[in-house]
């Protein structure tokens, strides 16, 4: 474990994961605001909130761009994480729940980009997938903290 912390890749691993985490957080927030704004438009009761919030298109674009940047960061974070784990536990790193969770989250976000760009998903169903992804991420983070402590 000490070897991992001293490795120069560790700060990079931590940094990109934090940026990725922030991006997914931002994507989830944009998705949430999208759903609120959509609800305003659907209900036809256009209050002050409606005037304040940006357009659906802007929110969708913000969410997707954050998702792309977040996925790139997560890819870099997971790759460096796998390498560092391999250094510490050459044989049994695959059994580490943190690593498995991270891997699953990464796959989930890749899948998200796939459904967006291959199947053209947007709106509520796509944003629900973002929320689930964010939940995965929070779990991964909690598991990492727990492992660390």
């Amino acid at each position: 474990m000490t070897g991992t912390l001293e490795n120069f890749l560790f700060p990079f691993h931590l940094g990109v994961l934090l940026i990725g985490f922030a991006c997914f957080g931002f994507a989830s927030l944009a998705a949430l605001v999208y759903l609120i704004q959509k609800h305003e438009l659907k209900s036809k009761h256009l209050g002050k909130l409606f005037l304040l919030l940006p357009s659906l298109e802007t929110l969708d674009r913000l969410a997707v761009r954050s998702l792309i940047i977040g996925t790139v960061c997560l890819t870099a974070g997971v790759a460096t994480g796998l390498y560092l784990a391999h250094l510490v536990w050459p044989r049994d790193w695959t059994k580490d729940p943190k690593v498995l969770f991270s891997f699953a989250t990464w796959l989930w976000f890749l899948l998200l980009l796939g459904v967006r760009y291959k199947a053209g998903w947007r709106g509520r169903k796509f944003f629900v997938l973002i929320f689930i992804g964010f939940l995965f991420l929070v779990l991964t983070f909690l598991v990492s903290l727990w492992r660390w402590m």
């Binding site: 704004q37 438009l41 005037l51 940006p54 357009s55 659906l56 298109e57 674009r61």
Partner: peptide
């Protein structure tokens, strides 16, 4: 805020599509 029906419709469109 717009007070004409046509402009209100366009303002709504901008809340959906942005530009």
């Amino acid at each position: 805020q717009s007070v004409s029906v046509s402009h209100t419709a366009i303002e709504l469109a901008e809340k959906i599509f942005g530009e």
